[in-house]
């Protein structure tokens, strides 16, 4: 039997300079939340198209889940990752990049990224991340009591 856990609505922040990428990601997140067996599926969405607006939105909204593109027009997603983790250490940050160099992957892990998606987007990659978030958030709630 499924037990219902009452949790507040969570927040997702999508950071990508290309509007179409954010739309595509949002579309597929919504689709996966409705089709797949995921525990946490009530999210409100926030978007940012560059590093400075991402920082601002992050501070205002304190999101639980972030999809963060590494290559932003006004800065590196890796720098943002550090700032996000300082502000909210339990934030689940997924790095997104067109180039998965070993340096990028290593730096992401070192700065506390929870996951790494190599573009192009596929539903399998996004779902893998959401399942991971489910496990992560369960653990987080347990530790918080």
């Amino acid at each position: 039997m499924q037990t219902k856990v009452k949790v507040r609505e969570q927040k997702i922040l999508l950071v990508d300079d290309l509007d179409y990428n954010r739309q595509l990601l949002r579309n597929n997140l919504t689709a996966l939340f409705s089709q797949q067996k995921l525990k946490y599926k009530a999210f409100s969405y926030f978007q940012a198209h560059n590093a400075s607006s991402a920082l601002l939105t992050f501070s205002q909204q304190n999101p639980d889940l972030v999809f963060l593109d590494i290559e932003l027009p006004d800065g590196s997603g890796l720098e943002l990752l550090k700032r996000f983790k300082e502000q909210k250490p339990d934030c689940f940050v997924v790095m997104v990049s067109g180039v998965s160099t070993l340096d990028n992957v290593k730096a992401s892990i070192a700065s506390g990224a929870a996951s790494f998606i190599v573009k192009p987007f596929t539903a399998d990659k996004i779902l893998a991340v959401l399942k991971q978030f489910d496990r992560y958030y369960d653990k987080l709630l347990k530790t918080a009591g």
Binding site: D17, L18, Y20, N21, E71, S97, G98, K119, P120, F121
Partner: peptide, 8 residues
């Protein structure tokens, strides 16, 4: 940008 987005 095309490289990163077009395939999606």
């Amino acid at each position: 940008q095309l490289k990163g987005s077009a395939a999606s």
